[in-house]
């Protein structure tokens, strides 16, 4: 608005300058004023053992400095029977943009269920892992903004863990932390699970130092590691807290646990 109407004749003549007004849409790139993503915070982690895989995630959901809710699961059973996924053998964890995470979970779950209807057998974790990669990659130009971790048991009954980037790049690993506190948890895991920077006592100095060889950890030790990782992350990251959800996949199925975390 040029000015408030004064009633006095405007300076510089009447100036009904129709010719000066724009008649065409401005050319060039247009920017959308809508950003379709948000970060709902939180962290997840997965560790695989000799005959089990553990996935864990905190249950806080955030928007900026707000806590949306203290209980929003980031771990989902995939496959199995019905809406409660009875008898499922695969777990997906997603962290990042929760709406994309839910959509991704829903898609993978339907695919795994359809696989069983069509082929009469359960999808293997490796097949499911590659399928998940394809789902993410197919949407690489408008990605699911999530870091996914998929866990289960492979065909030999060993713990299997796959981690993904938002556009479908994936690899099988021993352990992986993702989400807000990934940078806090991952070095701890490197040290405690893969024994990085640990050396055999008395093996010498300098180049003679012998690295401690990593070996699969027993289930109890892993559960303790997970709890320690999260209680520590809660202290140092504001988006992590409220509760810890764990899913432990063994040949007997999926055991789910919940432990409270600090709510501050």
């Amino acid at each position: 608005m040029a000015s408030v109407f004064s009633g006095a004749p405007p300076q510089g003549g009447p100036g009904y300058s129709f010719t000066q007004t724009p008649r065409a849409a401005p050319s060039g790139e247009r920017q959308h004023g809508f950003y379709p993503y948000t970060d709902n915070g939180g962290s997840t982690l997965g560790i695989s053992g000799a005959d089990f895989t553990i996935l864990a995630g905190d249950t806080r959901s955030t928007s900026g400095y707000n806590i949306n809710t203290r209980y929003a699961p980031k771990l989902f059973k995939i496959g199995g029977e019905g809406p409660d996924n009875k008898g499922a053998q695969i777990v997906l964890s997603v962290v990042g943009f929760a709406a994309d995470g839910d959509a991704l979970k829903e898609r993978l779950d339907t695919i795994v269920k359809m696989y069983k209807y069509q082929h009469g057998k359960n999808m293997t974790v490796s097949a499911c892992a590659q399928r998940l990669s394809h789902i993410l990659y197919n949407k690489r130009f408008f990605p699911y903004y999530v870091h996914a971790i998929l866990g289960g048991l492979d065909e030999e009954g060993k713990g299997a863990l796959y981690s993904y980037d938002p556009v479908g790049s994936y690899e099988r690993e021993q352990c992986r932390a993702a989400g807000a506190a990934a940078s806090l948890i991952m070095p701890f895991l490197d040290n405690q699970v893969n024994f990085k920077n640990q050396y055999m006592p008395g093996s010498g100095t300098g180049h003679n130092l012998q690295a401690r060889q990593a070996q699969p950890l027993p289930q109890n030790d892993v559960e303790e590691l997970v709890r320690d990782a999260f209680t520590s992350a809660v202290e140092r990251h504001i988006e992590v807290g409220d509760g810890l959800q764990m899913m432990i996949i063994t040949r007997d199925g999926i055991a789910e646990t919940f432990t409270p975390l600090k709510k501050d």
Partner: peptide, 21 residues
């Protein structure tokens, strides 16, 4: 009046161009 309210932006009548949401 243009001098009071500013020039009218005719581009709003434009139908070509990208779909606006």
């Amino acid at each position: 009046r243009d001098d009071v309210y500013g020039a009218y932006d005719h581009s709003h009548f434009q139908t070509s161009g990208p779909i606006q949401h």
